[in-house]
Amino acid sequence: MKSEINLAFEKCKKENRPALLTYTVAGDNTKKKSLEILKSISEYADILELGFAHNAPTADGPQIQNSSYRALKNGIKLKDVFQIVKNYKKSKNAKPCILMGYYQMVYRYGEKKFVKKCKQSGVNGLIIVDLPFPDNKEFSKLCKKNSITFVQLLSPTTSKERMRKIIASSHDMVYYISMLSITGGKLKVSPKKILENYSKIKRISKSKNAVIGFGITNKTIAAFKKADGLVVGSALCKGISDSIKKRQNPVIKLNRMVKELKSKII
């Protein structure tokens, strides 16, 4: 049986456009609001990544850090994250949902228990930022056994040989980090160069769903239309920060932002 993630990519390919992946942090700015945001942006997004906050993030820029600290200040716990996904997946337009975070949270919770809880809550995929290949082999297997896509990451520093190995052991989707950066960095490499690197992945495996993330905003997204999927995270987290500052409703703001992003890639 094809996974929900695979089906989402297939649908986009039929429509001749990249999949739009969003990233928001569970519990930002409240548990209730973050669920509302997910439901609202599902109108335009194809796959939703949801961050589970950790207070010692080593790969996140200021925007996602702000979102994470806000969520933690509001008391978000892992059990709430799972509850948010569970409630979201019950909604009528629910899209595939990928949880993203740091290994410490999984480790403390217990790998098996974590993956089981993901399955029960309807999580479709997992991205663990700091559990690189090949150290993630066992965990990745555990995910697969529970029908959860473990998303392998690739970066500009990944050698071709390593890329080959990682792709061979990957599931339904791989994630290409566009440049040497933490999340939310300014695009410091030209889209052309990024797509050149990206095409290395596609040459290794044409059929593999490969998404590009880091540095993608409504200004840059159109340049990457050729990719299978594009992830926008920090820009959305900043959207939430901005709307809170202006005492606006972040749900409406995010809905508009994702709508605009979508309009640039169709």
Partner: peptide
Amino acid sequence: GGNYIAETLKKP
């Protein structure tokens, strides 16, 4: 111990 790092740092 171990090496719990982002993919980008693997090569460096």
